[in-house]
Write a protein that binds this DNA or RNA. Sequence first.
DNA 1: TGCTTTGCTGGAATCGATCCCAGTTGCGGG
DNA 2: CCCGCAACTGGGATCGATTCCAGCAAAGCA
Lengths: 357, 357
Amino acid sequence: MPVRETTITDVAALAGVSRSSVSRYLNGHRVREAEGIAQAIDELRYEPSPIARSLRSGRTQSIGVIVADVANPFFAAAFKGIESETRRATTGPRAPIQLFLCNTEESFDQLLELLDSLSGRVDGLIIAPPIETPPPHDLVRQGVPVVLLDREFSGPSFTDSVLVDNEGGLVSAVTHLFELGHQRIGFISGPLDTTPGRGRHEGYRLGLDACGLPWDEDLVVIGDFMERAGRDGVSRLLELDPPPTALVAANNLMSLGALEELFQREIRIPEEVSFIGFDDLEAAELVRPAITTISRPMGEQGAEAMRLLRRRLRGEEGPPRRIVLPTRLAVRGSTAPPPERKPAVRGTSEELTRRSS
Amino acid sequence: MPVRETTITDVAALAGVSRSSVSRYLNGHRVREAEGIAQAIDELRYEPSPIARSLRSGRTQSIGVIVADVANPFFAAAFKGIESETRRATTGPRAPIQLFLCNTEESFDQLLELLDSLSGRVDGLIIAPPIETPPPHDLVRQGVPVVLLDREFSGPSFTDSVLVDNEGGLVSAVTHLFELGHQRIGFISGPLDTTPGRGRHEGYRLGLDACGLPWDEDLVVIGDFMERAGRDGVSRLLELDPPPTALVAANNLMSLGALEELFQREIRIPEEVSFIGFDDLEAAELVRPAITTISRPMGEQGAEAMRLLRRRLRGEEGPPRRIVLPTRLAVRGSTAPPPERKPAVRGTSEELTRRSS
DNA sequence: TGCTTTGCTGGAATCGATCCCAGTTGCGGG
DNA sequence: CCCGCAACTGGGATCGATTCCAGCAAAGCA
């Protein structure tokens, strides 16, 4: 039943040449019997085994992309950027580079297992590590080039990376709200052991400083970048007395959750509460009012990572590069001056607890 | 600089045994020097090469998942289902199975290239082919088990597949609208050369039949499952005279586009137009009114595919199975009886063309 | 004509593991 | 004491390609 695959030996035999010649033909060298070999390959429907090929040559024509959560639209968009850049760069007749997308589900152990199982199977890696730990030694040891995407390892950076200006993004958001007159700005933060989580948290703090607003620990809720955390964050923050007049969420999924919770409580945006999310999401365009977001070039971030990786694959040496792309505050309808006096936020603490039970 | 990886030979030498014994140790057989080998492995930080391993053994401990569009939330959700089922099944101490997610971007050529480059690198495949063509011979020939996800090849099915009841979903949507009193129901269809596109198109037709409504070609716009097509579909359908009083979109991304266009034109849902989308999307919960959708168990669909694949990997023979999961109409706020008389849809044809220019 | 260079060839080694097989060891029983 | 059997062992072949190398013919040059 396992109809033994046809191998290079079969082709060589049929074409009446040596295996070496077939191999050379396959790799684009000039060969005398090119015609006959091509015919034999065709006839036998021969396809070279990528496995054998890469065992011997050490090259695999493929690249691993490890992200923390494939369902996160940011990673999907970044992956698309990686893809289009890959396609753009692969012009010649040589075999195209393939991308394998892998998911850690925010688990560091899963990252280790992936590194294990990808070692030797890819020529390079683009990685968004789940949390900031020292880089796993497996990674350092095996010589494959690595570019970090959106997230870094702790300690001195030893690889290229493509980040965004998380701090700046949050500073501009906080400043924008302050200029509208907000004094109590709630923040649904990401986990502080991830690069963007920490950076945005820091940016929030810097923003308060810049505006002369006091730091109030109660106004910050630490979430895990998942939707659920957005809902919970809103619940927690609205229980405060007085509640914040503006909310900022540190990523797209938490924005989604936060908005769901706000809508469910029938809190009017921006009349009662202003809202800013980090990262555009498709829904942001749809929801009325449209949501003000801290926006960044998601596809470009992926594409840039791919460009860096290709350089290293071409053998370029040099110190690690660290590219930081700018963010931009896209002001839409969800931000406005705070309500005149005591904000008439619906749901006092008693009522809230009743509702959320 | 390429610090030659440590190989099984190094371990054998250090432990003072043969390569065979180390190999046996690695594969869980009982060996005399287990202790010493473990120590040597540890000391040298040895990791077996998956490439060499699979060249010889033919097994790879990994599975390829090929989808049409990683950015489509359905595929993301299905992939999560595949992942959790994989994790659930991998309990023993043996190496975990890894998943590689690949993207065809709805291109058949890209599918062929992926099959090429994955051949030999994976033990099994879960595939959502971009279009319904006869199965590529590469696929049939190489003996790896395949399960089709949500989409099929044309011709008699030769592999397992996990589909959903596309027809039934659309029949229930059309019937629901008819019962509310709608007579002119516009349909933004998917491409007819994909399984779900064709199935939903067929379901729309069946639904009309069942309700005794006439087939009107103008009421159907064929899109490509992308967001843009949703917008265009709405534009086209609203130019009709009289315009439809209800719209159905054949997938999530087109729903998104359609809703964007409707919102932009400030058409009130459901007062002026009722709307139903296929597949839940995160935004559906967020938008007011919440969107009525044809809902299906997305994660379950992936998990089921994985279960079928594991059976085949275990060597189970038998005719191809074809599993069809049910859909369910989740009635929310976007559907209501049509406006009383001539629907006061904003934007007559002149005005519309002006606006959309 | 003779010598070097160019361009291609096939044989053999190699990549790093698994797997087959014949051989060795240890142990219990007759 | 010898035999049989079970449990391991190491050597060598093997997976399917690439790559090194020596060889050889044709072409270039003086």
